[in-house]
Design a protein around this nucleic acid. Structure first.
Length: 469
RNA sequence: CGGGAAGUAGCGCAGCUUGGUUAGCGCGCCUGGUUUGGGACCAGGAGGUCGCGGGUUCAAAUCCCGCCUUCCCGACCA
């Protein structure tokens, strides 16, 4: 195999490797305004698959999609103290529109708790209106000082869910359901990224929440990426926006609300969790193109065979694309590798003579020759195998780079190369300060066995700490 | 927002120190031909407000000032 030269090797310079992949795989590039992102068709196709998988799971929980405005009155933000404090440094504010200074500045949404709270208050009268389960797919703006494509941009795409419930227990249970059945399930079973799950520490929590549940993935450089958050908002926003209901006895009570989101950042996670020195590696269940069929050289008979195989795979419901590019075989192969297509089906003169197709896996580079009649069946098996292998490899890397430690100093040491798990009781405010001074943070707090705590006050909880994106 | 580096063709760079022919090179792109089982070769060709604005000068890619953008390192975040 030839040595790949298209990309900066990961070991040499991981951030540069990341930029190279984003550029060479034609995922995205910078927009004209600092921090903005142009998502190219292949990058957007990945996002559309993320959306489809998550949307299906969100709807299965009973939530329905709606749309709320991009512009939010500034006064709404002022109503929840912590919320306004947390977000004010990142807000973009419109003060001038329609040719004149606005009487009240308008905020471009960084998140929609406030507007949605206002409308929930209108729509909810009685316990019969609960739970109210909403979701929206939208863009949001959080002005970023240090942007990076997909990971941190001043405008990004996401899904934000907002729900209202009669009791704290209902709200908590729903937030947990979203975390488990939407985010964790999607990340592990579709994106093939194992996640550490747990609660955010008070200082890492969403501004205005009483609890935040997170999924933290480990990237190939050992750093953590927060890939989803699910917040229990208690009655904070309900009080601020008047979201109340009458119970069966006629008593008026504040609702308990939740909010939860996952963004285009998961594309960044996909790149950094699976990518290698040859480029992106896309898990089959997410791949816009799961199989690419290519002829080894320009030749009518080969083209015809490729067309047949493509048709057969397509008829079997497999996301297949036929390579129509001209140029050398090696070049075309490399281009598809950079894009991370899980399986390549190659047909050359020898295959044609033997009635076979050469199938090559993107994850381990292994190749096999199969009879034409068994192509569909074998491709199916390979896609399953690649999907499983990506998760297994990611799990393996993660367990290699995760260490249980007993002191803050050891935690900082371990976090230079990966994750550390340290008793939460041992850290305290001072320990968390010490970590932060070394650019290490508490990613989540979980039970010793890795499961979600019932509450933050449980004894023996463990903090997962790491450097983070 | 602080500290560092850098903006010259789509991408990567040279030229700048010491101002002075028509601003170069590699890759990519276009045309034609030969090729094609892991980033092909030959020939011809297109493509530039030298990031933007101002200043110095007979003359600025080159010197000076301001701004914008990008990358790396720190504080905030999905």
């Amino acid at each position: 195999m030839a040595t790949p030269t298209a990309l900066t090797p990961q070991d040499e310079d991981f951030p540069r490797w990341y930029q190279d992949v984003v550029a060479k795989a034609e995922l995205a590039e910078n927009g004209p305004v600092r921090g903005t992102m142009v998502i190219r068709p292949y990058g957007y196709a990945l996002w559309e698959h993320v959306q489809a998988e998550m949307d299906r799971r969100i709807k299965a929980t009973g939530a329905r999609n709606a749309y709320f405005p991009l512009f939010i009155p500034q006064s709404y933000f002022a109503r929840e103290a912590e919320h306004v404090e947390g977000f004010s440094p990142e807000l973009a504010v419109v003060t001038f529109a329609g040719g004149e200074e606005l009487a009240e500045p308008v905020i471009i949404r960084p998140t929609s708790e406030t507007v949605i709270g206002e409308y929930m208050a209108k729509w909810i009268q009685s316990y019969r209106d609960l739970p109210l389960l909403l979701n929206q797919w939208a863009n949001v703006v959080r002005w970023e000082l240090r942007p990076r494509l997909f990971l941190r941009s001043s405008e990004f795409l996401w899904q934000e869910g907002h729900t209202a419930h009669a009791t704290a227990a209902d709200a908590s249970a729903f937030a947990t359901t979203i975390h488990r059945d939407v985010y964790r399930d999607f990340l592990v079973n579709v994106l093939a990224v194992p996640v550490f799950e747990g609660f955010k520490s008070p200082r890492e929590r969403f501004a205005g929440a009483i609890n935040t549940i997170t999924c933290e993935g480990m990237m190939r450089d050992g750093k953590a990426l927060q890939m989803s958050t699910s917040h229990e908002l208690g009655q904070n926003f309900a009080r601020a926006f008047g979201v109340a209901f009458q119970d069966e006895s006629g008593q008026s009570t504040w609702c308990h609300t939740t909010s939860w989101g996952a963004s285009t950042r998961v594309i960044g996670g996909l790149i950094m969790a699976h990518g290698d020195d040859r480029g992106l590696v896309v898990p089959p269940r997410l791949a816009p193109t799961a199989v690419v069929v290519l002829a080894v050289r320009e030749d009518d008979a080969l083209d015809e065979a490729c067309a047949d195989v493509t048709e057969e795979l397509s008829a079997a419901g497999i996301a297949v694309e036929r390579d129509r590019a001209r140029g050398s075989f090696g070049r075309r192969v490399t281009d598809w590798e950079i894009k991370g297509v899980p399986v390549r089906a190659e047909i050359g003169p020898r295959d044609l003579a033997a009635g076979t197709v050469t199938l090559v896996r993107r994850d381990d580079g292994s190749r096999q020759s199969v009879e034409r009649s068994r192509v569909v069946e074998t491709v199916r098996e390979l896609l399953e195998a690649v999907q499983a292998n990506l998760l297994a490899l990611a799990l393996e890397r993660r367990s290699q780079a995760t260490h249980d430690v007993g002191t803050v100093a050891q935690a900082i040491e371990a976090a230079q190369e990966g994750f550390a798990r340290v008793p939460w009781g041992l850290l305290g405010e001072a320990g968390e300060d010490e970590l932060n001074r070394h650019a290490v943070s508490v990613r989540c707090i979980q039970r010793p066995d890795g499961s979600l705590p019932g509450s933050v006050d449980e004894s023996d909880l463990v903090a997962v700490v790491a450097k983070a994106y």
